[in-house]
Nucleic acid binder design. Structure first.
Lengths: 158, 158
DNA sequence: CATTATTGGTTGATGTGTCAACCATCAGAT
DNA sequence: ATCTGATGGTTGACACATCAACCAATAATG
């Protein structure tokens, strides 16, 4: 704690490698979705959430809770997707503030076309190249980094 | 290889954890840069590259090679940064196509204000919570995922 | 009931990232 | 010298992400 923030050469190398991996992985998955279903990653997240819901529809509020975006991001994204015919907005009867967001036939077709290949891609590029030990190591690392970012309200004081 | 693309419940859990970690880590580092120097992550990448260069300047082409962005992304970003006084464009004498991009005094101040805290943040949120084994595991994983994405032209055929 | 606070959602502004089109210059060929 | 092609860089259009401001409707409080 005395020597502030030294980071060794090897650590930087890992950091950069990790950085590059994240970006290229995202890129590869985006490309796959675009190829197989003509949709983007954000499109897919929304379509999948709707697809897995009761009437293939959700209120904006619940969509927000499900995928963890900001409400304005949802709204903008849905606007673009509605213009392309992937989803449809409709009024919510029991709560006049609410908005239903519903999968269209075309949206359903898109998500069906994307799912299998998407899963296959994730398996091929990620899970298939990890050993079980690496997988659990990665999980542990992820959890610990998340804890470091959001300290879990450690009331271990008085 | 027969059973296509099954992904177990535990694997999905790791994937989501990993996903969340990446996003929140980026977020946390962005916030730190904004707080400590009033700059964004992209700003920082450019400023740092310039700061580490001979005359604190680089041609757009070399900046592209250094940080691996597309040329248009560099151009747009530099335009915004120039408007805020962080960098300055000037003509390149020996190649009339070229453009020098140079750190301004203000840009130098910004990067100096950001560097130490940025390194400290990366250490605190990332390296400090990883064991040496996890670090090397992560490196191996990153390398293998990158290879899976960009198959290294394996001419082990005939 | 009237007031106030909260919730649900949209909108506009700005920054970021990618793609394709474009233009000027330079380098190499004839 | 001229023609051709590659290189260096900018621009415009669009998608994406965040923030703040806003409005309508509901819920909570007096």
């Amino acid at each position: 704690m005395s020597e502030v923030s030294e980071v060794t050469r090897e650590e930087w190398a890992v950091w950069r490698k990790f950085y590059a991996m994240r970006r290229q992985l995202d890129r590869a998955l985006e490309d796959q979705l675009q190829r197989d279903a003509g949709i983007s990653g954000p499109d897919y997240e929304i379509l999948l959430a709707l697809f897995e819901s009761p009437q293939r529809r959700l209120r904006s509020r619940d969509l927000t809770a499900r995928i963890g975006w900001e409400k304005s991001r949802i709204s903008h994204q849905v606007t673009r997707m509605e213009a392309r015919g992937l989803v449809e907005r409709s009024e919510c009867e029991d709560d006049l503030r609410g908005t239903w967001i519903e999968l269209t036939t075309q949206g359903r077709r898109a998500v069906l076309g994307a799912m299998r290949e998407h899963t296959t891609a994730i398996r091929g590029l990620f899970f298939d190249v990890l050993t079980p030990e690496e997988l659990s190591s990665l999980q542990a690392v992820s959890e610990r980094v998340l804890e470091a970012i959001n300290p879990p309200a450690c009331d271990e004081d008085s």
